[in-house]
Amino acid sequence: MTTMTLGKALNESLRSAMEADPKVVVMGEDVGRLGGVFRITDGLQKDFGEARVIDTPLSESGIIGTAIGLAMRGYRPVCEIQFDGFVYPGFDQIVSQLAKMHYRSAGRLLMPITIRIPFGGGIGAVEHHSESPEAYFAHTAGLKVVACSNPADGFHMLRQAIASDDPVVFFEPKRRYWEKADVDTDAVAGPLHEARVLRPGTDATLLAYGPMVKVALEAATAAEADGRSLEVVDLRSLAPIDWPTVFASVRRTGRCVVVHEAARSHGVGAELAATITEECFYALEAPVLRVTGFDTPYPPSRLEEAYLPDLDRVLDTVDRVLEI
C-alpha cells in the first residue's frame, strides 16, 4: 500500500502495463521528453524508449487513425488527448473508424486502444480546457467509456482499460490529479465496468463519476450532520453502465440525484433518469433529479465556480428530492 496522487497512480499504471506487455505503446502530444502537460507519462520515454513512448505530430485525427493501424499490426496503443476540448479533430476516427471496426469486420479485427482524456473543469483554464464530452462517446456503439475518481481506481482501471480488447475512452478528472490516497497496486481489482457504493445510506442515492464523486461524498458528509443518510455510488463506467448496482441502490433509498459537470440536456444523467424510472418505477418516492452544468458552453474560468455543481447545489437538490 502506497500513498500517491491520482497523477502518479496513472503514471504507475502505464508503467506496469508497459512492463507487462511489450505491445503496449504510449502515444500523444508531448508525452515523451516532457512527460505530458500533466506529467502523467513522466519518465516513461526515458525508461521505455522513443519507440514505445511516441511524441506525435500535433494531430489528433492522426493519433487515433495511426493507433488503429498499429492495433491492426498487433500493438496495444494508449493514446493521450491533451485536453478534453482537443478531442474533436479525432472524433471522426473515433466514431466512424475505431468504434465500428470490430463490428464491420464481423469480429475479425480487435481494437485494443485506450484513449486517455483529462476532462472537466475547476483548474482555472482558458476555454476548451475544461469540457466534459463523455456523452458523445457513451452514445456511440462500439466504444466503452469509463471515468476514474480516485488514485486506486486510476491505477487499476487504467490497467484494465489497456488490457481490454475493446476500445476504451478513459476519462481522468484533471482537477483531482494532485489529490492523494492509498493505492494497493498488488490488489486484485474488481471488474472495470462495475459501479461502487462508496458510502451506504438510506434516504437518497447520489450517482456521480469522475470529479463529482468527491463532491457527492462531501455532500453526504454534510447531510449527515442534518440527520440525512445519503448513499453515494461511483458509476466508474458510463458505457456500459452497471445497472444492477444502480437499481439496487435506488430501490433501497427510493430517491436519486445524479451529479455531473457536463451539460444537463441529453447527458449521462438523462440516460440514468430514464432507465431508473423504467426499471425502478414502483420503488421511487420522487422523480430522479439532476445537478449538472448548464446548457451553455463552458464559461470563462472566473465563472466556473458558479457553473460547476458544488456542495451547496447538490444539497439544495437533495433537499428538493427529499421534500417530494
Binding site: 487513425g65 488503429i68 493501424g69 492495433a71 499490426r73
Partner: peptide, 13 residues
C-alpha cells in the same frame, strides 16, 4: 480515413 490506418500499420512494421 484509411490513409492514417495505412500509416499506423506501416509505423508498426
Amino acid at each position: 480515413s484509411q490513409t492514417l490506418h495505412a500509416t499506423g500499420y506501416a509505423m508498426g512494421i
